[in-house]
Simulated scan of single mutants.
Amino acid sequence: MARTTPTAPPKLGLRERKKIQTRQAIRRAAYRLFEEQGYDATPVDQIAEAADVSPSTVFRYFPTKEDIVLTDEYDPLIVEQLRARPLDEPPVTSLRHAIVGLIRQYAEDARGEMLIRLTLIRQVPALRGRMSEGLTQTGDMLGEVLAERSGRATDDLDVRVVVAAVLGALQEAVFHCFDRGRIEDMEKDIDYALEVLARGLTL
Score class of each variant (00 low, 15 high):
1 M>T: 03
18 K>P: 01
21 Q>D: 13
24 Q>C: 09
28 R>P: 01
30 A>W: 09
32 R>I: 10
32 R>D: 14
33 L>M: 12
34 F>K: 14
38 G>W: 08
39 Y>P: 05
41 A>E: 08
45 D>W: 15
49 E>A: 15
52 D>L: 13
53 V>R: 04
56 S>A: 08
58 V>Q: 02
73 E>G: 12
74 Y>A: 05
78 I>S: 04
78 I>W: 03
79 V>S: 00
80 E>H: 12
84 A>F: 07
84 A>M: 09
86 P>I: 06
92 V>H: 08
93 T>L: 12
95 L>E: 00
100 V>R: 02
106 Y>W: 07
109 D>M: 15
110 A>K: 06
112 G>S: 13
116 I>E: 12
118 L>V: 07
119 T>H: 10
121 I>H: 02
121 I>L: 09
122 R>Q: 15
125 P>T: 06
127 L>N: 06
127 L>I: 12
128 R>H: 05
136 T>V: 12
139 G>E: 04
139 G>C: 07
144 E>I: 13
145 V>T: 00
145 V>C: 01
146 L>F: 01
151 G>T: 02
153 A>Y: 05
159 V>M: 09
159 V>L: 11
163 V>W: 01
164 A>Y: 00
178 F>D: 08
183 I>S: 13
193 A>T: 00
193 A>E: 04
196 V>D: 02
202 T>Y: 06
203 L>V: 08
